[in-house]
């Protein structure tokens, strides 16, 4: 009896191990392909940024140096664009937080007429070809004298991140056990105190994840910034595209591109250190 049980148990375990090995191999292969697809272009850009001479048919640059870094960083328009991008991203994310966080709480905890329709409407900006939407908005902005202004670009970028700033916090608020809030009421906290001391701290990791995602998205956004902001408002990515398109020397664009990695790298390090991947997963319903 014992022997039969042992044999019948071994078979599924060994077959499970085989499946896992197969899955691991497939996973490793996929990871390698994805890594190559992501890393190789980045590596090429980084090599260009630090190369002074790189001619065909050489596989690697013939001469490395910081000449183009010095030249790029000595340009006023680069620093202006960097400052503008940081200001713009901060303002857009702050305004989005003020509007979207209370709205998210309402979506997650209240029942009102048209709730589901309104909630789905935040997908609209991402459900249709974006450029068509941008052109339509640009036509409206033209009449409102918002073209080429800081607030014009801020508004268009706000539209871009509404979905993240509504959907992710809604998921965060919905994931909180209502009993926790009731327990706080039970020991004497009013509704505002409950929100401040219990709900918000519980949802904070996921909300910070949404803020970071929105900040990085806004920082790198080009379509809206170019269509609404040009020619007066030039964010760093718009300037980079200009360098790539108009400059004969590839290195200017490459240097600016590497510079643009900095904010997302900081955001990612911050996210890994303080939030953890589960907050992102929770935000997307995981």
């Amino acid at each position: 009896m014992t022997a039969i049980t042992a044999t019948s148990q071994k078979a599924p375990i060994s077959s499970l191990a085989t499946i896992r090995t197969k899955a691991d191999l497939a996973g490793i292969t996929l990871a390698i392909i994805l890594t190559l697809a992501v890393i190789v272009p980045l590596l090429v850009v980084a090599l260009w940024a630090f190369s002074e001479v790189w001619r065909y048919p050489h596989l690697l640059p013939q001469q490395f140096g910081l000449r183009f870094w010095n030249q790029t960083l000595s340009r006023d328009d680069v620093w202006d664009a960097l400052g503008l991008s940081l200001r713009l991203s901060t303002v857009v994310v702050a305004v989005a937080a003020v509007i979207c966080l209370p709205a998210s709480y309402a979506f997650s905890r209240m029942r009102f007429f048209g709730r589901d329709t309104l909630f789905l409407s935040f997908l609209a900006a991402h459900a249709f070809p974006k450029f068509g939407l941008l052109v339509t908005i640009a036509a409206i902005f033209l009449r409102l004298d918002l073209i080429g202004t800081f607030w014009g670009v801020a508004l268009i970028q706000l539209v871009n991140i509404l979905m993240f700033m509504i959907w992710i916090p809604v998921a965060a608020f919905q994931a909180i056990d209502k009993r926790m809030e009731e327990a706080a009421r039970d020991v004497g906290a009013g509704p505002l105190r409950v929100f401040w001391s219990i709900t918000l701290p519980q949802a904070a990791p996921t909300i910070i994840a949404a803020l970071l995602l929105s900040f990085v998205t806004t920082f790198y956004e080009t379509d809206g910034a170019w269509l609404i902001g040009a020619p007066e408002i030039r964010t760093t990515p718009v300037l980079m595209i200009g360098f790539i398109n108009n400059e004969m020397v590839i290195q200017y664009g490459a240097v600016l591109s590497v510079l643009l990695w900095v904010p997302s790298a900081i955001a990612l390090i911050f996210a890994r250190r303080f939030i953890g991947g589960d907050a992102f997963a929770r935000g997307f319903g995981g």
């Binding site: 009993r179 926790m180 009731e182 706080a184 039970d186 020991v187 009013g190 219990i198 519980q202």
Partner: peptide
Amino acid sequence: QWPERRPTAMVFQSHALWSH
């Protein structure tokens, strides 16, 4: 009366402790 005004205290099935 609102819960916060009542002289009662509840122990919940899920404990409902504040994990932060």
